[in-house]
């Protein structure tokens, strides 16, 4: 039996929509953001429209039921039902959208704001574009010393950072549940792997309050670590972060 084309189109759309939800929310256990799903569906609808209408005959087949519904006198009852139901559904949709809820408003915030070119860290003005990790060079020059530095960084991390960022550096430390947004997951390929070491240095040293205005609202609870740690401790912790996760800091030089 051949399924009518209009039904086909609707089924495809519904399939894709629930497919996304099933795959992400259930199978992968990582919800798909509703804002993203809405945009995805917009373009899926566009794609389905394109495939179903590029041919004249098939288009006629597609719109035939709609046309019949509007024009065919024998479908009067159906027409009246549809004409009554559609505004009701639209009204209900509008109501659901506008209904006030206890959900806090969306906070749109840039997670990686562009750092300032220079920042005042440890009483010094540093140029973030040129700043380099003074210990990074040991990775090649003196691997043994490098290992030692990484281990020192690990101690700093465990004593200070793991409460929030977790002992696996996955952002799931004991305190993480109390924070919103939750602490950064350094294992993620989209976090420290995308950044230069100088960026991490700036972010760790100046913490949440050091974020530029465009990153507002400041809902980062990251402390201003320059008040608690020494400069070399921050650099060592950075070594540890990359070493443990296996990521490489972003650099503009080839190896």
């Amino acid at each position: 039996m051949k399924i009518p084309r209009l039904l086909q189109a609707v089924l495809v759309l519904a399939g894709v929509y629930y497919g996304f939800i099933i795959v992400f929310d259930i199978l992968l256990d990582a919800v798909i953001p509703s804002s993203l799903l809405a945009m995805y569906m917009f373009f899926v609808v566009a794609g389905v429209f394109m495939v179903f209408t590029y041919d004249e005959d098939q288009t006629r087949e597609l719109v035939a039921p709609i046309k019949a519904l509007v024009e065919d006198p024998s479908k009067r009852i159906w027409r009246n039902i549809v004409f009554a139901v559609v505004p009701l559904v639209a009204g209900a949709g509008a109501y659901m959208q506008m209904q006030p809820s206890f959900e806090a408003p969306l906070e749109l915030r840039t997670i990686h704001p562009a750092p300032p070119t220079t920042a005042k860290i440890f009483g010094k003005r540093v140029n973030l574009l040129k700043l380099e990790n003074p210990y990074r060079k040991f990775e090649k020059e003196d691997p043994e010393k490098f290992r030692e530095l990484v281990e020192e960084g690990a101690i700093v991390y465990i004593q200070n950072c793991q409460y929030c960022h977790g002992d696996k550096l996955d952002g799931k430390g004991p305190y993480a549940a109390g924070l919103n947004p939750t602490p950064l997951n350094f294992q993620d390929v989209g976090t420290i792997a995308q950044l230069q070491e100088s960026y991490l240095f700036w972010r760790i040293a100046t913490g949440g309050p050091g974020l530029p205005k465009e990153a507002a609202p400041w809902i980062s609870s990251m402390p201003v670590w320059q008040d608690f740690l020494k400069e070399d401790e921050i650099w060592k912790v950075i070594l540890y972060l990359y070493d443990y996760t296996g990521h490489h800091p972003r650099s503009w030089e080839s190896e």
Partner: peptide, 16 residues
């Protein structure tokens, strides 16, 4: 940077 509701943020355990 995904635009997330607070509920989704919680469910995902972070903005990533």
């Amino acid at each position: 940077t995904l635009v997330l509701t607070n509920e989704e943020l919680k469910a995902l355990g972070g903005p990533y």
